[in-house]
């Protein structure tokens, strides 16, 4: 019983920790792209990588202050949106999907390549750039604090708190936007671009605005991740994260302001709980070692999540928050 409570506490920490913030921010950006505007961005992680490396490179290599690093990270993600969007947003939706997926993989390979090593430090990655931020922590960074049954370092607590503040700010921003006439245009573009053009709206400009906004939100996700882990390594930014962010979005409910947030919390809870729980069962001999060893658990939990998502799509396609009527309309 105590062990179970402990497993719940560990999963709870994961669900509220910086990783949940990371996925929530990625998914809020994707919600803007995919949920509201209908843009298929399959390379959201590239924006996050530019955010993380924006700070890391600026501070460590160029000796710039932390906050300037943030600005540079944002600027880099804006430039990436423009580069990806300019040629593709006039074309059919699939073109953006292809280009973003290629850009995410290509940028990661570029960042870890030998020729980029002077700037990105290649596969070693960059560390020790978050001092300027952690120093501001109101909590003692050398102490550990007990919270909800687990312990948190002071710096960790600080980064996570700021992360959730960012999540709140971006949720507010998205909420303000999608209930405005701007949001109406964007949602209409998701439904049928040509109808919107015929009504005198510059579809291309709206798609670009949406792409930039979602990308910037993703970049902030990458910054939180980099600052929380204290390192920026290209291999942290595998494109699998984009698809996990999509899972978060679908789990929570697309085109709902809080969908990505709840999705991130629930998904990370499940991932961590199945991990701790399965190890517990193996350690106690309830699952025989021959059937499943603790090294398999890390992979198996993703299989379980995959099955869970499939069941979700069968029985509740709108996700936790979505509107079933709305989702089923497409079936007509």
């Amino acid at each position: 019983m105590g062990e179970l409570l402990n497993a719940i506490a560990i999963a709870g920490k994961s669900a509220l920790g910086f990783q949940a913030v990371f996925y929530a921010l990625l998914a809020i950006g994707l919600n803007m792209h995919f949920g509201y505007t209908g843009l298929l961005n399959f390379g959201q992680i590239a924006f996050a990588m530019l955010g993380g490396f924006g700070i890391a490179v600026s501070v460590t290599n160029w000796g710039l202050p932390f906050w300037l690093g943030v600005v540079i990270g944002v600027a880099a993600s804006v430039v990436l949106s423009l580069l990806l969007g300019l040629p593709t947003l006039r074309l059919r939706a699939d073109y953006l999907a292809i280009v973003t997926i290629a850009a995410a993989e290509g940028l990661r390979l570029l960042f870890r390549s030998v020729s980029a090593t002077p700037i990105t430090n290649g596969t070693q990655g960059i560390s020790a750039f978050n001092g300027g931020f952690v120093r501001l922590s109101p909590w003692d960074t050398n102490r550990r604090f007990r919270l909800l049954g687990t312990t948190w370092g002071g710096g960790e607590l600080w980064v996570t708190a700021v992360g959730w503040l960012l999540v709140a700010i971006f949720c507010l921003l998205v909420w303000l936007l999608v209930r405005s006439p701007w949001g109406r245009v964007v949602k209409a573009i998701r439904e049928d671009e040509d109808a919107v053009r015929a009504l005198g709206k510059n579809v291309y400009a709206y798609k670009m605005q949406s792409l930039v906004l979602g990308g910037v939100i993703g970049a902030f996700g990458g910054m939180v991740y980099a600052v929380a882990t204290g390192s920026a390594n290209p291999d942290q930014y595998q494109n699998a994260n984009t698809f996990l962010a999509y899972a978060v979005l679908i789990l929570g409910g697309a085109a709902r302001v809080l969908g990505p947030v709840v999705g991130a919390i629930v998904l990370l809870f499940i991932l961590q709980f199945t991990d701790t729980g399965l190890r517990l069962l193996i350690d106690n001999g309830i699952i025989p070692e021959g059937l499943l060893s603790s090294t398999d658990v890390a992979q198996l939990r993703f299989v379980l999540v995959g099955i869970g998502l499939m069941l979700l799509l069968v029985f509740r396609p709108q996700g936790i928050f979505g509107d079933r009527r709305e989702v089923m309309l497409d079936a007509r």
Partner: peptide
């Protein structure tokens, strides 16, 4: 525009909206 309400469909048609 299927997943917009009828009224939202209509409002989309208005020109010169500053909220856009």
């Amino acid at each position: 525009l299927s997943r917009l309400s009828v009224l939202q469909n209509m409002l989309l048609g208005a020109q010169g909206q500053s909220g856009e």
